[in-house]
Design a protein around this nucleic acid. Structure first.
Length: 540
DNA sequence: AAAACGCACAACCGCTCGTAG
DNA sequence: TCTACGAGCGGTTGTGCGTTT
C-alpha cells in the first residue's frame, strides 16, 4: 500500500497532541503514517487477541500507538476482506441511496457495503459533493430528490392546496418561526428536522421519518444531508449564486456572532432575510436548514426570473451587498416588489417582512405544523396511482405570482439547477403517504415499543428494504436514474439487473417507475439531474 | 519537455457521543 | 455520577496523478 510505503519514509513523523492523554503519554505515542512493521505488529496482535480492547494493544504489543489509532488502522487498512479500489457503479448507487436514507452515517453505510470502510465512503462522498458542485449538478438525481421530498413533505391539506388564508392561525409568526426559536434543552435532544437541511450539524437522512413540520412549498427541495457544514458555513461563509446564466454570484456570509440558539431555516427563501439573520447567528450553532435547495446548486426560486443557488466555500468575509439588493428586498423583478403575502417578524430584531419573498413565504408555510393525511384521514393514493392521481395544477398556495413556475427554464439552467419539481404538495403527499406507510407503521410501533425499539425496528425495516432484491412482477425496469452522474459508468443501462438497482427501486417506491415510464426519455430526465418539466403532469 | 496547477484520494487527528463498569 | 473506552464523524493534510501552461 502506498500509505505503508510512505509510512516507512515518514516513520518519525508525528502530529500534535493527543486529546485526553497526558502530555507524557501523548509524547510517547507515535502519530502519523503507519509503518509496515507496525502494521505487522498490529495484525499479529489482532490475530492473537482479536479485535477490541485497543488500548491494550499498546501495552501488550509494544506498539507506540494509541488504541484509537490501532483501531482505525485495523478497521480501515488491515482487517481482512477489505475491498480496495474505486467503488463499483453498484456500490456507488448503493452509497447514494444509503446516504439518502441515512445521511452521513458512514459507519452504517459501510455496514451495507462489505469491504468498505466508513472513511472510504465518506471520502468518496465528499469527493462526489465537490465534483457535482463544480459541475452544477444536484447531489442527488432529481428523481431521488423528488422521492426524498415526498418523504419529507407534509401537505397542509391532503385534499389539495389549502389556501394560505385558510389557516391563518398557523401562519402566525410564533408558530411559523417556531423552528427559529432557540430550543430548550429537551428540544435540542429531539431529533433535528429532516435533512432538508443545509448543513445541519447532525445531518438527517432524507428518508428518515420525522414528526417535524415539513416543507410544503414546491420549491422546497430536500437538501442532502451532506451539505457543507455549518462549521464551514461560519468559517467560509457561503454565497448564493444566482442563476448561472443571468445573475452574478452573490455572497452571503454569516458573520460570527453569538447565536440565540439553534435555528432552523426550514425554507431559506430570501437572502435578504438570510443576510439579516445570519450575522446574528453563529453558523455552527444555527442548525440552519435550507430547503428548497438542491445540492450543490440550490435553486432559490424566490421570485421573479431569478433563482438562486448556494455556493459554498467563500470566505466569511465576503459579504455580498448585492444579496439584499438582488433578492432580499422582496421586490423581485417580476414580482412587483410588494411584500410577500405574509409578513413575519421572527425572533430577530429586524422585521423580516420587508425582505420577504416567495421563499420566505415558503419558509413560513414550511414551518407550519403538518396537517397531513395522518391527521385528516384522507385516503392515501396507492403508489401505483401516484402519478395518475396527480391533481391538476393547484392554485398557488404560497408562491407568489413571481414564483418559479413562471420562470423560463432554459435547458442550460435546468441542467445546472436541477430544479425541484414544483409538484403539488398533494401529489407529493400522496407519494409521501404511500411511501411513508412503512414509516408510519414504524412510528406507531415505535410508540408501542418505545423509541429505542422503534428505532431498531426502523433500521431493520430499512435494512430489509434495502436488501430485498425482489421486484414486483410486471414492474417496469427502473430507470437508470444515476446516469446523470458524470462519474458513473456509462455502461449502466443494464443496471436494472443489478440487485442494488432493484433494491433501490424497491426502496424508492413505485412512483419513480411511474415517473420514468411517463417520460419518453430517461436521458432527458436524468442526463443532467433535472426534470423535463414539460413532461411532468400536474405541475405548475 | 518541464514546471505549475488542480483534483482525487488516502490517511490521520480531534472532537463528540454512547455505553459499560 | 464518574470514568474509560469504543465508536462515529468532520475536518485537515499529504501524496500521486493528470492536465494545463
Amino acid at each position: 500500500m502506498a500509505a505503508a510505503a510512505t509510512a516507512n519514509a515518514q516513520e518519525s513523523s508525528s502530529g500534535g497532541g493527543s486529546g485526553g492523554m497526558s502530555t507524557a503519554m501523548a509524547a510517547s505515542l507515535k502519530k502519523g503514517p503507519w509503518t509496515s512493521a507496525e502494521d505487522a505488529i498490529l495484525v499479529e496482535y489482532v490475530k492473537k487477541h482479536g479485535e477490541g480492547n485497543w488500548n491494550a494493544v499498546q501495552k501488550n504489543s509494544g506498539l507506540s500507538r494509541c488504541g484509537k489509532s490501532c483501531r482505525l488502522r485495523w478497521a480501515n487498512h488491515l482487517r481482512p476482506n477489505l475491498k480496495k479500489g474505486s467503488f463499483s457503479p453498484e456500490e456507488e448507487r448503493l452509497i447514494l441511496h444509503l446516504h439518502a436514507k441515512l445521511g452521513n452515517k458512514w459507519a452504517r453505510m459501510a455496514a451495507q457495503l462489505p469491504g468498505r470502510t466508513d472513511n472510504e465512503i465518506k471520502n468518496y462522498w465528499n469527493t462526489r459533493i465537490k465534483r457535482r458542485q463544480r459541475a452544477g449538478l444536484p447531489l442527488y438525481p432529481a428523481e431521488m430528490q423528488r422521492q426524498v421530498l415526498s418523504h419529507h413533505t407534509r401537505p397542509l391539506n391532503c385534499d389539495g392546496f389549502a389556501p394560505v388564508s385558510a389557516k391563518p392561525a398557523e401562519l402566525q409568526p410564533p408558530l411559523a418561526f417556531d423552528c427559529l426559536k432557540p430550543l430548550n434543552p429537551q428540544q435540542q435532544r429531539q431529533p433535528p428536522p429532516p435533512p432538508l437541511c443545509f448543513d445541519h450539524p447532525k445531518p438527517r437522512p432524507f428518508f428518515e421519518s420525522s414528526n417535524s413540520p415539513q416543507i410544503l412549498n414546491c420549491d422546497c427541495y430536500p437538501l442532502p444531508s451532506q451539505m457543507p457544514h455549518l462549521k464551514r458555513f461560519s468559517d467560509r461563509a457561503m454565497s448564493f449564486s444566482a442563476r448561472a446564466s443571468t445573475l452574478s454570484h452573490v455572497a452571503l456570509a454569516a458573520a460570527p456572532a453569538p447565536a440565540p440558539g439553534p435555528l432552523s431555516f426550514r425554507q431559506m427563501g430570501n437572502f435578504g432575510m438570510a443576510r439579516r439573520l445570519m450575522p446574528q447567528l453563529r453558523g455552527s450553532d444555527m442548525g440552519m436548514e435550507f430547503c428548497g435547495l438542491s445540492e450543490p446548486s440550490i435553486p432559490f426560486n424566490n421570485g421573479g426570473s431569478s433563482s438562486f443557488s448556494i455556493k459554498m466555500e467563500l470566505p466569511s468575509s465576503q459579504y455580498a451587498e448585492s444579496v439584499s439588493s438582488n433578492t432580499g428586498s422582496g421586490a423581485p423583478p417580476s414580482g412587483g416588489g410588494g411584500p410577500s403575502p405574509m409578513e413575519v417578524v421572527g425572533p430577530t430584531a429586524e422585521p423580516l417582512g420587508q425582505s420577504n419573498s416567495g421563499l420566505l413565504d415558503a419558509l413560513l408555510l414550511g414551518t407550519q405544523p403538518m396537517s397531513g393525511c395522518e391527521e385528516s384521514g384522507t385516503p392515501v393514493h396507492s403508489q401505483s396511482n401516484f402519478w395518475k392521481n396527480l391533481p391538476p395544477p393547484p392554485q398557488p398556495q404560497v408562491m407568489p405570482a413571481n414564483s418559479n413556475c413562471k420562470v423560463e427554464w432554459t435547458a442550460a439552467e435546468d441542467t445546472i439547477l436541477a430544479a425541484p419539481s414544483p409538484a403539488t404538495p398533494c401529489a407529493l403527499d400522496d407519494s409521501s403517504s404511500a411511501q411513508s406507510s412503512m414509516g408510519m407503521n414504524v412510528k406507531l410501533k415505535k410508540e408501542e415499543m418505545g423509541e429505542k425499539d422503534g428505532n431498531r425496528m426502523e433500521e431493520e425495516e430499512e435494512l430489509s428494504t434495502l436488501l430485498d432484491f425482489s421486484t414486483p412482477s410486471g414492474a417496469p425496469p427502473i430507470a437508470d436514474w444515476y446516469s446523470d452522474s458524470t462519474e458513473m459508468s456509462n455502461a449502466q443501462s443494464g443496471v436494472t439487473d443489478s440487485p442494488n438497482t432493484v433494491v433501490f427501486e424497491e426502496d424508492m417506491g413505485l412512483e419513480m417507475r411511474h415517473l420514468t415510464s411517463s417520460l419518453s426519455s430517461n436521458d432527458q430526465i436524468w442526463a443532467l439531474g433535472s426534470y423535463a418539466w414539460n413532461n411532468l403532469p400536474g405541475i405548475c
